[in-house]
């Protein structure tokens, strides 16, 4: 039986049998709609992902190529500047960049998603929250492009395997949850504040330098751990931490889980209030 039937007021008999609080209904309806529209989400996300390298000669290789050039180039130069072994620094930069690109991509994509889908929303009854989710799924589809580079880098330059790697399983799950929650929150905010997407696109470039991706936290011994104030630090460590042993997964994961919960709650409240009226706002 579908969640709506259990929750809807149209069937009073059912309602009395399965009375549920409105918030539970809203959450059930939300997940039910994701399942119901799964094909739409997947096909649109795949289309939006391939749109960026449409009709180019190297196609999907561009994503992997630009990633390896950027990570390799920076790591090569920085390792000379700071006199660090390249084999240490390259996987560090690559895995940091991996999480960064994904979360940054989700943020910018989702902030634009509802405005971008204006034509569709004006005509169809597809729930509005599907479109930020498409932005998140699009970035999940990008992951294999990075992995075909990141895994060889890890194997060749790091090559230490331990049980700690098992943390990556909940790590990826947390990363997906974070991406989904962020995309929903920013998706709705972006529909109301058209500046948000531009602000993010430019602001993130700035925050990038404050996030330990191109630098390591142990470069200046005695420096107060100001990076702990940067929420992106935890997201970046989500994958890099277990892979390279740069941080304690328990601490990082509990921080990200807590943060994701707060974002999801905020997103939930916003969706609850704006899910329908946002259609009027963007028109």
């Amino acid at each position: 039986m579908r969640a709506r039937e259990r929750c809807g007021p149209e069937d009073d008999k059912q309602r009395s049998l399965h009375a549920r609080p409105a918030a539970v209904c809203a959450v059930l309806n939300f997940f039910e709609s994701l399942i119901r529209w799964r094909e739409l989400i997947a096909v649109f996300a795949f289309h939006r992902m391939t749109a960026r390298y449409r009709s180019s000669w190297l196609g999907p290789l561009w994503i992997a190529l630009s990633f390896i050039i950027f990570a390799g180039g920076i790591a090569g130069m920085w390792s000379m500047f700071f006199d660090r072994p390249f084999s240490d620094f390259f996987p560090y930069v690559a895995l940091g960049l991996f999480s960064w690109n994904l979360t940054g991509g989700v943020m910018v994509d989702s902030a634009r998603s509802l405005q971008q889908s204006k034509n569709i929303l004006l005509q169809s009854s597809v729930p509005t929250h599907i479109f930020p989710i498409i932005g998140a799924v699009k970035n999940i589809f990008v992951i294999p492009h990075y992995l075909i580079v990141c895994i060889p880098i890890f194997v060749i330059f790091h090559g230490e395997y331990s049980l700690r790697l098992l943390w990556l399983i909940p790590g990826f799950a947390l990363l997906f949850a974070f991406m989904a929650a962020t995309s929903l929150l920013l998706g709705y905010l972006g529909a109301y504040f058209a500046d948000l997407a531009e602000l993010l696109a430019n602001g993130l470039r700035f925050v990038f330098f404050f996030t330990p991706i191109l630098w390591t936290t142990d470069m200046r011994p005695g420096m107060p751990p100001i990076w702990l104030l940067n929420p992106f630090y935890y997201v970046v460590e989500l994958i890099r931490g277990p892979a390279l042993g740069t941080s304690d997964p328990v601490f990082i994961y509990s921080m990200v889980a807590g943060g994701t919960a707060v974002i999801a709650l905020a997103a939930g409240l916003i969706i609850f209030v704006l899910r329908d009226t946002v259609r009027l706002r963007i028109s």
């Binding site: 094909e39 739409l40 096909v43 649109f44 289309h47 749109a51 449409r54 034509n119 569709i120 004006l122 005509q123 169809s124 597809v126």
Partner: peptide, 25 residues
């Protein structure tokens, strides 16, 4: 609903892809 011809057509997608996209909508 047949309200507007262009609704839901992605201009950069091929006609073939658009058949899928619009039908899914």
């Amino acid at each position: 609903a047949i309200l507007s011809a262009q609704a839901g057509l992605e201009m950069n997608a091929t006609g073939y892809e658009n058949i899928f996209l619009r039908s899914l909508l």
